[in-house]
């Protein structure tokens, strides 16, 4: 594990992080930050965390860079050079070194990197690995634990996305009084990009649906699929102007879908409560779904729950992009 590719990547990641903070121009530091996230995905794939790498690539690297660019597009790119006031920098440096030292202090008795007998890998997660398939018939253990054993966490995760999109929409929504000032770039109606994106978008969305549907068998699931679907909408918004996209999915409908996604997830968990079982206990669905045993009911309800997540995340990413890029007026975009 040590001399493998991870060590090299870790050093590279460190360099990228430092560079991204030091670059003067904001846009390029965001691009370097995007590269930093992509390298992070590679490290995590190296360590066997495929689902996390997928999410980081889609959500962490892809979408957040787009958000950064959306904000920077209408504001400044340059940093005003400020006199280097040493006192604040030194004070914070000491503070961080102190906390760093404290963390190092705790290192001495942590298990070394990647040994399977460490307590963290033998206590609870051993049970998951051994019995997840038997109890839920879902080969992808990550999705099994994500959507069933700790479904409550995931439900709140979807709420987090919903809160983000609602909060951003509420904060930025202007009543349209003062129009967005003329940005330098002309609305690009570049034919080639439009044709290429019109060709690619259906495939992207198909792939997104595939990822959502195949969350059980291959890496992926609600979040990653939702982000891909959201990304396809963002691609259309970038290629064409915002008016065009709003016909596809208007802002009101987007918010409504975001709520419905969460309601699907929470509702699916609520039904067992009405049937007398505890919240999010999918085995209660066996009674409702025709011809499925307790275990199969779990795996089907996981799919349903993933769909709910996908809807919310799709509308979430799309909504955040639309608000950020048009500063709440939803009239002109990137």
């Amino acid at each position: 594990m040590l001399l493998g590719i991870e060590t090299l990547l870790l050093i590279l990641v460190l360099i990228l992080a430092v560079v991204s903070l030091w670059i003067r121009d904001l846009m390029s530091s965001v691009v370097v930050f995007g590269a930093y996230s992509f390298l992070m995905c590679l490290i995590w794939t190296g360590m066997g965390a495929v689902d996390v790498a997928f999410t980081e690539a889609a959500v962490g690297a892809g979408v957040s860079t787009v958000f950064f660019v959306a904000v920077l597009f209408n504001t400044t790119r340059r940093i005003q050079f400020n006199p280097l006031d040493l006192s604040a920098k030194i004070f914070s440096a000491i503070l961080c070194i102190g906390t760093g030292y404290l963390l190092m202090l705790g290192l001495s008795d942590l298990p070394s990197w990647g040994d399977p007998q460490a307590l963290v890998n033998t206590n609870v997660s051993k049970y998951y690995i051994e019995s997840a398939y038997k109890q839920t018939k879902v080969p992808n253990l990550v999705t099994a634990v994500l959507a069933d054993y700790r479904a409550f966490d995931t439900m709140f995760e979807t709420c987090v996305v919903f809160i983000a999109v609602l909060g951003i929409f509420m904060l930025l929504k202007k009543d349209g009084r003062e129009p967005l000032k003329e940005t330098s770039a002309k609305a690009n109606d570049n034919l080639i990009i439009r044709v290429a994106s019109r060709f690619m978008v259906p495939f992207i969305q198909l792939f997104g649906l595939y990822v959502v549907a195949h969350g059980h068998y291959s890496p992926g699931g609600g979040f990653q699929g939702g982000v891909i679907l959201g990304a396809s909408l963002i691609l259309v918004a970038m290629a064409f102007n915002i008016e065009f996209v709003k016909q596809l999915l208007s802002i009101k409908r987007m918010l409504l879908l975001a709520v419905i996604g969460v309601i699907i997830f929470a509702g699916w968990g609520l039904v067992p409560v009405f049937l007398g079982q505890s919240f999010l206990d999918y085995s209660a669905w066996a009674a409702l779904l025709p011809g499925t045993g307790e275990i199969m009911a779990r795996s089907h309800s996981m799919l349903a729950v993933e769909i709910g997540v996908a809807i919310t995340v799709m509308c979430g990413m799309y909504g955040i992009y639309m608000s950020l890029v048009s500063d709440g007026r939803f009239d002109k975009g990137l």
Partner: peptide, 15 residues
């Protein structure tokens, strides 16, 4: 197999 539990926690943390 790699430990699935930490991965789930980190999915939430990324989002």
């Amino acid at each position: 197999y790699a430990n699935p539990l930490t991965q789930i926690l980190m999915l939430t943390a990324i989002v």
